[in-house]
Structure formats: C-alpha cells, structure tokens
Amino acid sequence: MAIKTSQKLKAEIRPEVVADVLSQTGTGGAPFRATFTEAISDLAVSEYFTCAETGYLRTYQRTATAPYYEDQGDVAAPVSQAQMSAFPGPLQNGTWKRIFSLPRLLLSGSGTVTIDARNRSGTVVLAVETYTLTAASGQIEYPYFGDDAVEVRATITGTATAEII
C-alpha cells in the first residue's frame, strides 16, 4: 500500500522496547524496569537496570542505601549526574562542584560567599576567593581559583547566592 504524502504517520517510542533492543544488541545490557520500586524489589545490590520513570530512559545501579539506586547516565549518551555538575549552575552551600577554565560567578543577595578549591590530587586550598555582598543584584565576578583547581566549594551566609556562569 502506498502512503500519500498528505497522510500523517503516528509513531510511539516506548522506553521498554528501546531498552529491550539495546540489551539484545549488546549496546545496553541492563534490563528495563518500569518503576524504581520494581527495580528495587527485583534486583540485587550492584546490578544495573534501565528505567524511564523520570520521563527519560536512563541507566541506574541498584544500591544498598536509600534511595536504593544511583543514576549512571542517559542510555543513548551516558552522562552521570556527577559529570553534569561541571556545567554552569548554582553553587550549593558546602557541596563540591566541578569547574571548567575561566568560570565567572554571578552573585546576589547579602552576606558572604567564601570559595575553597580542590585539585585533582585532592589538595584543598581554603578561601581562595571571598566576597562580601550588600544587596547585590547580578554582580559578576571573575574569580581565580588556582592554576590546578578542578572543583570548588562555597560557604554561603545570609541571603547570598552564587552561581557559576
């Protein structure tokens, strides 16, 4: 039967079918589970699985501690949540964030923002940058975290916010 160009085709891509095809072709050997609850009850600790409960087909590893799974990345382009932390975004108080070369900081609010830096070998340099803010609104800074810094951690007080842009 010929299809006229004026006809519209409808297609539905179902995550469980994609995961099944990937596991059979050897490009993604983790079994599909419809929900995290199903994966937690079916799989042993350290086993991998795919799930689309979040709306995206991703690979996870079953863990022994809550929430009992760890994001291992997108099935098509594996990138874990930890690797995604290198992209621009807000700095969370006391949390390490990967950085790229020549980042800028967007500062707002009132308080202090103190930045610590860590290199690849794990050496931490405290207070490489400190900013005191008074009603700042979109203040942009060009910090120097050190020649070999790969991660930064912010200590934030008051209503201050800091974001790598």
Rank of each mutant, 00 (worst) to 15 (best):
M1D: 11
M1C: 09
A2H: 02
A11T: 03
E16S: 05
V18S: 02
A19M: 06
V21K: 08
L22R: 12
Q24S: 04
T25M: 07
T25R: 11
T25E: 04
T27Y: 13
T27K: 09
A30G: 07
F32H: 08
R33A: 13
A34K: 13
A34C: 07
F36N: 01
F36Q: 06
T37I: 01
E38M: 01
E38T: 02
I40H: 03
A44N: 14
A44L: 06
S46T: 14
F49K: 04
A52F: 03
E53F: 03
T54E: 14
G55Y: 02
Y56Q: 08
L57S: 03
Q61S: 00
Q61N: 00
R62S: 10
T63I: 12
T63D: 10
T65E: 15
T65V: 14
A66G: 03
Y68L: 09
Y69V: 08
Y69H: 15
A77E: 15
M84W: 10
S85F: 01
P88F: 05
P90G: 15
P90V: 13
L91K: 04
L91E: 01
L91Q: 04
Q92Y: 10
Q92P: 03
Q92K: 15
T95D: 11
R98G: 11
R98Q: 13
L102F: 13
L102W: 09
L105T: 00
L105D: 00
L106P: 00
S110T: 15
G111N: 12
G111H: 07
V113E: 00
A117D: 01
R118E: 11
R118V: 09
N119Y: 13
G122D: 11
G122M: 11
E129M: 05
E129V: 05
E129L: 00
T130S: 15
T134F: 01
T134W: 00
A135C: 06
S137K: 07
G138S: 13
Q139C: 06
E141H: 00
Y142K: 09
F145I: 06
D147Q: 08
D148N: 15
V150P: 03
E151A: 14
V152T: 08
A154V: 10
A154Q: 02
I156H: 02
T157E: 08
T157V: 04
T159N: 13
A160S: 14
A160C: 12
